[in-house]
Design a protein around this nucleic acid. Structure first.
Length: 760
DNA sequence: GGAGGCCTCGGAAGG
DNA sequence: CGAGGCCTCC
């Protein structure tokens, strides 16, 4: 540990050693930011600062975990006591300690965005408002924005300019929805993500003693990715730092890409004004990328007006110029990228994990996936539906939530009739009506159902009582069983496990497996149990973490050597030797919604900067001339960002004649432009047909290698075992077979996905 | 209560 | 195009 300092360059060293007062570290892309942060904390501890007195805030669990692990490897288990985590998890911890001050139970539930939107939907409905006008997404983002700007429901209702804006949009009732939303959350003992920030602010503001306590506790404060902070985060940090004034923020204004969710780049641009006598450090040496990439990225970002002057440079090799690839269609683009990856792999003996394909929108992943699948290139997609958002997982978690907080209404609404127990929509509506009328939670109503005028008949009433008894029985086990035992008990006792087990469709099987995975997680959690008479790893403790987890926290072991596919947003903070940035088209990247405002266009440019600077050795840009958008073919122009890269650093595609792209070993399949399915001059209508023809001919091509499935054959399926092919239907990628699998019954199987082996 | 048909709408996304 | 919401019909 003694000479960790020597591993740093001189600016990095200064940034680590300058522990007192306000410090701002501007960290260019790939400049060793994490290293500086971890060493800075290690240095503080080394100096004798108590780990309990250090607060380090990040935006993602992953960043917090990585930092903690690295610090632990330097200074040992002492690192466990650091206050290190995401804004949300640290503030949730504070709020659980101070729950009484805001009238919440200790075990408050954290509503995710889906819960919050569902609640908004039901409020809109109960108020009899038009749900086309008051779309839950829109209302949610309005409320969220208000909270992130520390505007309470009351303040919202009294703010003339907000009200007139709502009125102008024809939506004057948002204030009412907001205010009822707040009441309902309180009644349910629930907070949404924004509340974790907003209520922390409120507690600090209303209770100076609580603020003072935390100001004294957090003698040293660090904030990572400061350019991504919103007003609430900015304000709370400022409040906390007031006493000791030891605040260090780290960030890069050039990588601010989250303004659409409230991040305010001004926070970092104004840091020196906010905190007098700021020491600032610029980490400008890039350790990640080639000279060529650094130069190209610098040239791009220089087009932005508002930024700190930075001079990012590197000692790395010159590297090759950025290559631009042009294809006729989005599917061709996918093929070109996949072919290029295959070539590079063979040519340079590379691993899959050295490649990333980055795109602006999730929808673009499809053409990439198809092409990769055809070449048998393993890939992993980040983003999309998260594990914790899956229906079956949310259902089971809803039971868990109700076990320790039965007032949780969104959980109750999900499970009161799942698995089916005869408490239908009509009954639920009556319950909601009664609970609203009496200003009680639904749980309070159903657990004393006889004392309310609900208009519910005796049949359903009995079923409700059984449901209540069941939930109560789970609650009584909460502190007697550990998380796994109770979790398992709930999964089976509710009938949820059996319900999923009985479903033998592939989706059903996967749902069952997901539940098993969740239970495995519980098992691991409970295994950390200390030896004592009462379990400490109880279900409610497990749930404290779960609400704040995301998919990125669930890295799968067998996913490690795969090509990464993700949006540029989720690539921030990552690096790959070879990076493909696809869909470089006007109205896609930059997005159509951004091209009319300077600030939004600048944010898109920062996004492009982030994308480029992910690359270590080489970056490839590609664009298609036509692309399927919402089922229609649209024409596209190459992105303006391509032309913002000086010609010294980039290789443009040769328009005429079409030529192969770089490596030529697999010349035939490696061409980027020569495989156009459309003869020049043909009209648009024929495009779709032509596309289909290519797909068909490709299938014939692959047929040489993979078996042709025919009627009457016996085949073996990974999951269903042996079966007989009844019929084959469709062409190209849509080719599917009806196969009879004995005890699993008849299945329709898309051949392009299924791994079928011909047995006879 | 659930399956299936019709309609609508579409950005990026951590906690 | 395709996911999700809503409605209808059984």
């Amino acid at each position: 540990m003694q000479d960790f300092i020597n591993q740093l360059n001189s600016v990095q060293q200064e940034a680590v050693l300058s522990t007192e007062g306000p410090n701002m570290i501007l960290a260019g892309a790939g400049s060793g930011k994490t290293r500086v942060l971890t060493y800075r904390v290690a240095h503080l501890l080394n100096k004798g600062i108590d780990s309990f007195n250090i607060l380090a805030l990040t935006f993602t669990n992953k960043a917090a975990r990585e930092m903690r692990e690295r610090i632990e490897s330097i200074i040992g288990p002492e690192a466990k006591n650091l206050w290190m985590g995401t804004f949300h998890s640290i503030f949730a911890k504070i709020l659980r300690n101070e729950h009484e001050k805001i009238g919440y139970p200790y075990n408050f539930t954290i509503y995710d965005t889906q819960d919050a939107k569902n609640l908004i939907k039901s409020i809109t409905k109960e108020l009899g408002l038009d749900d086309k006008l008051y779309k839950s997404n829109m209302v949610y983002s309005r409320i969220s924005a208000a909270k992130n700007n520390l505007i309470s429901a009351t303040a919202y209702s009294n703010d003339a300019s907000i009200l007139s804006e709502d009125k102008r949009m024809g939506k004057p009732e948002i204030r009412r929805i907001y205010s009822i939303y707040e009441t309902r959350c309180l009644k349910a003992g629930a907070m949404d993500f924004d509340d974790l920030l907003f209520k922390t602010y409120e507690v600090f503001k209303k209770f100076p003693d609580v603020l003072l306590k935390h100001q004294q506790l957090f003698k040293y404060i660090l904030v990572d990715e400061y350019q991504d902070t919103n007003y609430a985060q900015y304000t709370i940090v400022k409040m906390l730092a007031k006493a000791h004034n030891n605040i260090c923020v780290v960030g890069d204004d050039a990588q601010s890409i989250y303004s659409f969710r409230g991040a305010n780049i001004e926070n970092i641009l104004n840091f020196q004004k906010d905190y007098s006598n700021t020491q600032s450090f610029k980490l400008e040496q890039n350790y990640r990328s080639s000279k060529n990439i650094v130069a190209a990225a610098n040239a791009v970002i220089a087009k932005n007006k508002d930024q700190f002057q930075k001079d990012v440079w590197t000692d790395n090799d010159q590297g090759s110029r950025i290559k631009v690839v042009k294809t006729k269609t989005d599917n061709e683009e996918g093929k070109a990228v996949a072919n290029k990856i295959l070539n590079l792999k063979l040519e340079k003996q590379l691993e899959n994990q050295q490649f990333a394909i980055l795109y602006r929108t999730n929808a673009q992943s499809r053409s990439m996936e198809e092409a990769l699948r055809k070449l048998n290139l393993p890939y992993k997609i980040y983003g999309g539906l998260s594990f914790y958002q899956r229906k079956e997982i949310k259902d089971l978690l809803s039971y868990y939530r109700m076990t320790f907080n039965p007032n949780d209404e969104e959980a109750l609404k999900r499970i009161i009739n799942y698995p089916t127990r005869g408490i239908g929509k009509t009954t639920l509506d009556k319950l909601i009506l009664t609970s609203n009328k009496n200003n009680k939670s639904i749980w309070e109503v159903i657990s004393n159902i006889d004392s309310y005028e609900t208009g519910i008949g005796n049949g359903p009433k009995l079923k409700i009582k059984n449901f209540v008894t069941m939930i109560l029985s789970f609650g009584s086990e909460l502190f007697r069983k550990n998380a796994f035992d109770l979790g398992q008990h709930i999964a089976s006792h509710t009938g949820l496990l059996k319900d999923l087990y009985d479903d033998k469709t592939p989706e059903g099987i996967s749902r069952y497996e997901n539940i098993q995975e969740l239970l495995n997680g519980l098992k691991q959690f409970s295994a950390q149990e200390e030896s004592s008479n009462t379990p400490s790893k109880t279900l409610d403790k497990f749930m404290e973490d779960v609400a704040l987890l995301t998919d990125a926290d669930n890295e799968n072991q067998d996913d490690y050597n795969k090509i990464s596919l993700m949006t540029i947003h989720s690539a921030k903070g990552l690096e790959f030797p070879y990076v493909f940035i696809v869909g470089m088209e006007e109205n896609l990247f930059p997005s159509q919604l951004s091209v009319n405002s300077r600030s939004e266009l600048e944010e898109e440019r920062r996004l492009f900067y982030v994308a480029l600077t992910r690359a270590e050795k080489a970056a490839y840009l590609s664009y298609a001339q036509t692309r399927f958008k919402f089922g229609n073919i649209t024409y596209a122009e190459p992105s303006r960002f391509i032309s913002e890269i000086p010609l010294d650093y980039i290789e443009m595609p040769e328009v005429n004649p079409p030529r192969n792209y770089a490596g030529t070993r697999l010349a035939e399949s490696n061409s980027f432009v020569s495989r156009s399915p459309i003869p020049p001059g043909k009209k648009l209508v024929s495009l779709e047909k032509a596309e289909k023809q290519t797909q068909t001919s490709n299938t014939t091509e692959t047929a040489k290698r993979s078996p042709v499935i025919k009627e009457g054959q016996t085949v073996e399926h990974l999951r269903f075992g042996r079966g007989k092919v009844i019929s084959v239907d469709g062409i190209g990628p849509n080719k599917k077979a009806v196969i009879s699998f004995g005890k699993h019954g008849q299945k329709q199987i898309l051949l392009k996905f299924a791994k079928l082996k011909i047995v006879g």
